[in-house]
Amino acid sequence: MATHNDSPITMDTFLAGIWRENPVFVMLLGMCPVLAVTNSVSNALAMGLATTFVLLCSSALVALLRHHIPKEVRIAAYIIIIATFVTVVDYVIQAVSLEVYNALGAFIQLIVVNCMILGRAEAFASRNRVGTTLVNSLGMGLGFTLALLCLGSVRELLGAGTLLGFPVFGEAFEPWVIMLLPPGGFFVLGAWLLLFAWVKEMQMKRTAHAGEASAHAR
């Protein structure tokens, strides 16, 4: 059994997943659905919400059972828990909207092997209380959804000239179809990562400059 650091719930528990430890942009986890289903905003949203639901339920259950799962078989136990909730989501989406189900295809079932969910179970849910875990997972789920939306909106905008199905650029726009095809996914995600790396570097330079300036002043 892992160590128990039953840390209190803070704003940071929630916000960590959205920015500082964003599962997609910072930790590079769960990349497959990120690239595969983000060719439109609505697909991205559906996928994000489905993943968030599985993440919330499975991490809550893992947190509840954390004292009862033997250490040796914990990964297997986590996977079974996750697979159960994915089966639930799979059937629910099929019942609610066949259109979404067909658009996402096998990727709903492939939520099982989203490393982010297993990573949360192993790294957080197995060491924290249910409340803390729920808050943290919600943040992670939202961060994941946000990342999917970032990709989905850029790809739909450039690849089809629409946003959520509504035309944005008018008649004259020639769609950049490659953005909807597989290479577009790699390029757009690469571009977002470049952007974040650039922002991070600018921040570091600024703090370094500030440090130098104060050193000179002394």
């Binding site: 590079l28 490659i178 095809l181 597989p182 290479p183 577009g184 996914g185 790699f186 390029f187 995600l189 690469g190 571009a191 990562l193 470049l194 790396a197 650039w198 570097e201």
Partner: peptide
């Protein structure tokens, strides 16, 4: 360039490979 090292570079590479595979 320093910002492109690591994951961003790999993704761009994968994109070009993916283009080739198309």
């Amino acid at each position: 360039p320093s910002i492109a090292r690591g994951a961003a570079m790999s993704l761009m590479l994968a994109g070009i490979l993916s283009l080739a595979f198309m």
